[in-house]
Structure formats: structure tokens, C-alpha cells
Amino acid sequence: MAAGGDHGSPDSYRSPLASRYASPEMCFVFSDRYKFRTWRQLWLWLAEAEQTLGLPITDEQIQEMKSNLENIDFKMAAEEEKRLRHDVMAHVHTFGHCCPKAAGIIHLGATSCYVGDNTDLIILRNALDLLLPKLARVISRLADFAKERASLPTLGFTHFQPAQLTTVGKRCCLWIQDLCMDLQNLKRVRDDLRFRGVKGTTGTQASFLQLFEGDDHKVEQLDKMVTEKAGFKRAFIITGQTYTRKVDIEVLSVLASLGASVHKICTDIRLLANLKEMEEPFEKQQIGSSAMPYKRNPMRSERCCSLARHLMTLVMDPLQTASVQWFERTLDDSANRRICLAEAFLTADTILNTLQNISEGLVVYPKVIERRIRQELPFMATENIIMAMVKAGGSRQDCHEKIRVLSQQAASVVKQEGGDNDLIERIQVDAYFSPIHSQLDHLLDPSSFTGRASQQVQRFLEEEVYPLLKPYESVMKVKAELCL
């Protein structure tokens, strides 16, 4: 049975990233139509530049190519590739079939990587351009969430054990800070992308030097003109047959890092959902379990974690691919890159769409948070109580021993009897502590235990987050809708 299948058929496997999760716009960027249309555009740009620099290419040939950029006979191309065992030459023939007058000058002087690699770089750039505003929107939604809850005390956790208090907004800023680093890295790697350009079979530009009869300047002009037509500021000066596969490492490393950030955020949300302090959106008709109707599973956060793990592992592909590119190139890269580049971007696209949807509907339960604080705060307040007693004339050592005994009794009630923490009640009825009984409410005010959390939130948002989001103001209103 021949390899390949009808990918629109229910009898043929289709990647869930495309069929179930990723956005239509990201799927289109990695589609065959987008790819092969870009090949034709690159052939047109090459012909236009070659004509401008004096090669015998007519206006009629150029116009014929322009008129057929979208006229792609995919069936013919597939048949040609089956016959020739070469995808680029299959599309040269297919393009030439609908451009008979231009057929002889299509791909003039070029090698397969002229269309293959340059198209990949265009796709990487455009895919990054799709991700950047999506990530900015996630940051914006979380920034709104953090600002609104900047002063809401909550129990902090280290080692997932109760620690000092923080605020809900401050905790959210930990998430935002990681995503801001990801946004900066995505922008950097996007701006650092260079075009492969017009380089020939081993990167020496020998074929173009021959076409222009040894004119170095025209060869350099050709490279520059096509690079500018493709919208790049610069091209690699040095290439082998391909652009260095280190570029793929750079791009997928940034995406993998984004995956790590999203995994951490969504894990926190899942843990908070278990504590009943916070939940992701839950639709009115949504079913959490087929057997347990009360369940409210954090399905979206779980999906993000599941896909983020996949995204983090994909960076190993370009690392290994770059390491086995012998001399000017081997074909070890080809099949692998067809999979890992598309999957990385479709996965990143999915987790950003999902995280935006989550961040637009996060639900906080202040009463649950308050109750958990009441359970733990008495123990945390013991040092403040000791200091207040010393100020009232008591002995630190005597007070410490009193607190120690009462704390152990209260802990026994919590752990052995399943009761509430009654340390404060014990202190309130103990005559030894009568000098500070009137101060206990103040000493137990949760806001006095959150330090500068709310001020940190305000400063972080104003100095770091809002300036970073400013270039994306025009796209901030787009909502994230999930079908599944």
C-alpha cells in the first residue's frame, strides 16, 4: 500500500493539533497551500530580480507567473513527485505547466533550498508574528487579574506546605514575570531571523556568478533584492546548502521555554482548584465526569500541561538535527523538520489560546482563602504575639514557653481530632496574655502579614508589564474561544 493518505478522510490519521486544537490561522501558515504558494512567490521574486539585473526574462513571463501564483494543481504535483521522487522539481514542473512561456526560467540558477529553506524562514517569521500578540493578550488578562487582587491576602506555599502570606495578585505576578520573559525572547528570536537568500547549491553562489558572467556586484544585488522582497532586513552571508540548523534550535528553545512557563502556571491553577481557592472557567453544560456528576475538573489547565510537556520535548529534535548536518548538509534534517517545526508552533498556539481562555474567566473564592488563612495564621502570628507581650512588660522566655504549650495543644486538636485551630481562643482565655487581649485582632490582621506584596504588584505592572504590552494595544480586544 502506498504511503500517505487522504487526510480529510475519517479513515486516515490526522494530527489532533490540526484537527482538534490549533487555530485556523496557525494551521494555514503550515498548510501545503501556504507552503507551495510561497515557493511560487519566491520563484517570481527571483525572476523579477534577475530581470532587473539584466537576464533575458520578459515582462510577459513575469506576468504569467504572477497570474498563476494561486493556480496550484495539487493532484498534478503529487503525481509528479511520485514520478520524480523530488518535491521541488515536482512543483517546478507543475508551475511550468500553467506558465508555459515562463517554464524555462522558473528556478533559474537556484537549488531546492532556495524555495525550501527560504519558505521555512518566512513561515517561522509569520508563525512567530501570530504567537506574539496571543502571548501579549494572556499577559494582559493576567495583569488585569493581578491588579484587581493585588491586596487580597492568601496563604503562600513553599514545598506545598503553608508559608508566609502573600497576595493573590502577587502570586499571579510570578506567572506574568515568566511570560514577559517569554514574550521578550519570542520577539528577540523573531527579529534575529535572517533570510537564507540566493546562495546556490553549497552556499557559494557559483551558479549565479556564472549567470551574471562573473559580476560579483550583481550577485550581491540579486541576494539583497530577493531578501528585501521577502520582507527581511538581512540575509546570511555564510550558508551551506541550507541555512544553519542552529536557527531551528533557537526558535524551538524559546517555544519550549514558553511551554515550561505555561505548565507551571496551569499546575498552580490545578492545585488551587483542589484547594477550592480558584477555578478555571466551567461552562453551564460542561460535564466533569461521566460517573461523578459533582466533579469540576480543571480540564483546560490539564490540557495545557499535557501539550506543554510535548512542546518542551520537541527542542531535542533540532538539537540532534543540527549535530548531524555533515559538511554542507545531509538530508537527516528533512523529514524531522517537516514534523517538529509545525508541531512546535501548533502546540504553542494551542496552549496560548487555551491559557487566554482560562485567564479571561478565572474565578476566585475569597471566603475559602480566608478560612485557610484562619487555619494557619495563628501559628504564624506567634512571633508577633511574643513581641507584643514583651512590649507590655512580659518575659520573652516565659511567653515563648506559654505559646509553645498552647500551640501544641491547638495542633493536637487540628491533627488528632480534625478540629479547627483554636490557638487564639486559648490565648484569649489565658490570664497571662490579658495585657494584649485587646491587640489580638490587630495582630491577626492578614494584611499585616503580606509585606509589600501589593506595592510590588503595582510597581511591576507599571514599570515592566504595561510598557512591554504597549506595541500590542491594537490587538488586545480579541477574545479566545474554545470549541473543545
Rank of each mutant, 00 (worst) to 15 (best):
G4P: 11
S9K: 13
P10E: 15
D11Y: 10
S15P: 13
E25R: 13
F28C: 07
Y34V: 06
F36C: 15
T38M: 07
T38F: 08
L42A: 04
W43F: 08
W45Y: 15
W45M: 09
E48I: 08
T52F: 07
P56G: 11
P56F: 08
I57L: 07
Q61P: 04
Q61C: 12
E64T: 11
E64W: 08
I72H: 08
F74Y: 10
E79S: 11
E79C: 13
E79D: 14
E81S: 02
R83P: 09
R83N: 14
H86V: 00
M89Q: 03
H91R: 05
H91K: 01
H93T: 15
H93C: 15
F95M: 10
F95T: 08
H97D: 14
H97C: 12
C98M: 10
A102Q: 03
G104A: 14
I106M: 08
A110N: 00
C113W: 01
C113A: 11
C113K: 00
D117M: 01
N118D: 02
N118A: 06
T119F: 08
T119G: 13
I123E: 07
L128I: 12
D129E: 11
L131Y: 08
L132N: 14
L132F: 11
K134L: 13
A136D: 04
R137W: 06
R137D: 08
I139G: 08
S140P: 04
A143T: 10
A146D: 00
K147Y: 13
S151G: 13
L152R: 05
L152G: 03
F157M: 09
H159K: 02
A163R: 00
Q164K: 00
T166V: 09
T166I: 08
V168W: 06
G169Q: 03
C173N: 00
C173D: 05
I176E: 06
I176T: 09
I176R: 01
L179F: 13
C180Y: 06
M181W: 09
N185R: 11
L186R: 02
K187I: 13
R188Y: 02
D192G: 13
F195M: 15
R196C: 13
K199Q: 06
G200T: 00
T201A: 03
T202H: 04
G203Y: 00
A206N: 12
F212C: 09
L222W: 01
V226A: 04
V226I: 07
A230D: 01
G231H: 10
F232S: 04
A235S: 11
F236Q: 06
F236D: 05
I237E: 09
I238P: 05
T239M: 05
G240H: 08
G240K: 02
T242Q: 06
K246S: 04
V247A: 14
D248K: 04
I249M: 08
I249K: 05
E250K: 09
V251L: 14
L252P: 03
S253T: 14
L255N: 06
L255P: 04
V262R: 01
K264P: 05
D268H: 09
M278P: 02
P281W: 05
P281D: 08
K284F: 14
Q285K: 15
I287C: 13
G288P: 00
S289L: 01
S290I: 01
M292C: 02
Y294V: 03
P298L: 03
M299N: 09
C304T: 12
C305V: 06
S306P: 02
A308K: 02
M312Q: 10
M316V: 11
P318K: 01
A322R: 03
W326T: 05
W326N: 05
R329Q: 01
L331R: 01
N336R: 01
R337T: 01
R338G: 03
C340I: 10
E343S: 10
E343A: 09
A348P: 03
D349C: 08
T350R: 05
T350N: 15
N357T: 13
S359Q: 08
S359G: 13
E360T: 04
L362F: 13
V363K: 05
V364T: 05
Y365L: 09
E370A: 09
R372I: 06
Q375L: 07
L377G: 03
P378S: 06
F379A: 03
M380F: 08
A381D: 08
T382I: 09
T382H: 02
A388I: 05
G393T: 07
G394S: 12
S395Y: 07
D398F: 10
R404F: 08
V405C: 14
L406Y: 13
Q408I: 08
Q409Y: 07
A410I: 02
A410L: 05
A410R: 04
S412R: 14
V413T: 14
K415T: 08
K415R: 08
K415W: 03
Q416R: 10
E417W: 09
G418N: 03
G418D: 02
D420R: 04
N421D: 05
P435S: 11
I436N: 05
H437S: 11
S438Q: 09
L440Y: 03
H442K: 07
L443W: 03
S447T: 13
S448W: 11
F449C: 03
G451Q: 04
R452E: 07
A453Y: 05
Q455D: 07
Q455A: 12
Q458I: 08
F460I: 05
E462V: 10
V465R: 03
Y466N: 11
L468E: 13
L468F: 08
P471G: 15
E473L: 15
C483H: 11
